[in-house]
Design a protein around this nucleic acid. Structure first.
Length: 407
RNA sequence: GCACAGGUGGGUGAGUGGUUAAAGCCAACAGACUGUAAAUCUGUCCCUCCUAGCGAGGUACGAAGGUUCGAAUCCUUCCCUGUGCA
């Protein structure tokens, strides 16, 4: 594997086992070999909120996200680059993926104007004006140096009429072509491994497992994104056009934007049929524990979602017995663990009563511990999904286990 | 003892005659959260009843009494708290 790495390749995807529509495999990136299906914690500004990198390693996070828009605004791409890219800056030696800022076209809709050329944002930090295009989003992402970078797309709002969905999808396709063109012309070999003395300050701290230590060079990989709103036909067309442009991996974007869950599933399922089976498929922004199991089962290889981290900070915890709103008065005297079936450090050590107390007291530890548990639960869930696939079992059985409210 | 200042719903604190069951904040309780403008946001928060509503009663701004069509708001007395002077 190390040999392949040093030959300057980008990502490679190897499917090891198929079970129904579900696939288990390895996605090899410059910094790490990722077991799929994989859940990717979101660390928008270069931090998975509340959890330091060493803890993410302990939890078994294989790859985390950063966001181009946020990192461009602060601390700035140049700063990050000086530290050896995002890996060096945040001291993360496993894989990284940066989102292009396309989602901010959707989420910051009050603060932006979109045209064929790109999107103009008013910074949510200081109101200053910034222009994002497929070209400069990719340029910024080359500077950030993540293993996987995303084409600049327009995440279509919901609801939208067909005309709007079509126009948005077509522009995303044109933007995808521009993203790729710019990437092909400007991609550089990015250093990986020991980027700087900064990156591995502690002697012998490198954890075992799926992490590469060899020095060498490799290139980033650019993934395309399918849009098309809630229309199966437009999704099909978007998939075909994006595949025709040609990427080493494909994402399904524009979902979980307020539409009914059943519709999300329908669109995912139909869109997957139009994506090449031998390339990684990334469903962006999804979902609940039940959903990540369900979509892995449908053949999705990668997912990311802010839900586990954000919900944790807001006192909503996912457990094998259902959702626990740890702020509820009913847990004030509860000596039991958050999730009796969870082996994470939080569940092994702390009572529900204490977790509730920390939350009620507004202690930072509440956010930290809650996030560690939720991420642990998500990552563990994916581990179980991979295991089920490797055994050739329908991982569907895992679904629904968590949706029942506690008796 | 005298002189000021003040006593408002779980807390704090607005309100100085009528859209005031009484702002705001906090606490409490419940809910939301899906490529992170999110340690955020929403709702409830005196009691009872129902046809569950900008619904009907009741109780409430230290206590008692009074003025007034109407009082948390004005008057009298009393109780209590703080500060100052003796």
């Amino acid at each position: 594997m190390a040999l392949l790495q040093s030959l300057g390749m980008s990502v490679s995807f190897h499917i090891e086992k198929i079970c129904g529509k579900a696939r288990m495999g390895q996605l090899t990136t410059p910094h790490a070999e990722i077991e799929t299906p994989v859940f990717m914690p979101v660390g928008t500004v270069g931090s998975v909120k509340g959890v330091p990198q060493e803890t993410l390693e302990d939890l078994g996070a294989q790859i985390i996200l950063g966001n181009t828009y946020h990192l461009y605004l602060r601390p700035g791409v140049e700063t990050v680059r000086k530290f050896g890219g995002l890996h060096g800056f945040i001291s993360w030696r496993r894989a990284l993926l940066t989102d292009s800022g396309g989602f901010q076209v959707f989420s910051l809709n009050e603060l932006r104007k979109v045209s064929e050329e790109g999107a103009t944002f008013r910074s949510h930090l200081d109101g200053s004006s910034h222009f994002f295009s497929p070209e400069n989003s990719v340029a910024a992402q080359i500077g950030l140096g993540a293993d996987i970078i995303m084409a600049f797309d327009e995440c279509t709002e919901y609801p939208a009429d067909r005309e709007r969905m079509r126009a948005s999808m077509e522009m995303t396709a044109r933007w995808a072509a521009r993203s790729k063109k710019y990437f092909e012309e400007h991609k550089t070999e990015v250093p990986w491994g020991a980027v700087s003395s900064f990156q591995f300050p502690v002697e012998g701290s490198e954890p075992a497992g799926n992490c590469k230590l060899e020095t060498g060079n490799s290139t980033q990989s650019l993934f395309g994104i399918v849009q098309g709103g809630m229309d199966r036909e437009l999704r099909r067309e978007s998939a075909e056009r994006t595949v025709e442009i040609g990427f080493p991996g494909y994402a399904i974007g524009g979902l979980s934007v307020g539409e009914p869950r059943e519709l999300t599933r329908e669109i995912v399922e139909s869109t997957l049929e139009h994506l090449p089976a031998d390339k990684p498929r990334y469903l962006m922004g999804v979902g609940t524990p039940e959903e990540i199991v369900e979509y892995a089962n449908l053949g999705v290889d990668m997912m990311d979602c802010v839900l586990p981290t954000r919900a944790a900070r807001h006192g909503l915890l996912f457990t094998s017995e259902g959702r626990v709103s740890i702020k509820q008065a009913r847990y004030a005297q509860d000596p039991g663990p958050l999730d009796p079936n969870c082996a994470c450090r939080v569940c092994r050590r702390y009572s529900r009563a204490y977790l509730r107390h920390l939350y009620a007291s507004n202690e930072i530890a509440a956010q930290v511990l809650n996030t560690i548990h939720n991420l642990s639960f998500y990552l563990d869930t994916m581990r179980r999904v991979r295991h089920a696939i490797s055994l050739g079992e329908e991982s569907r059985f895992l679904s629904g286990v968590w949706s029942q409210p506690k008796p």
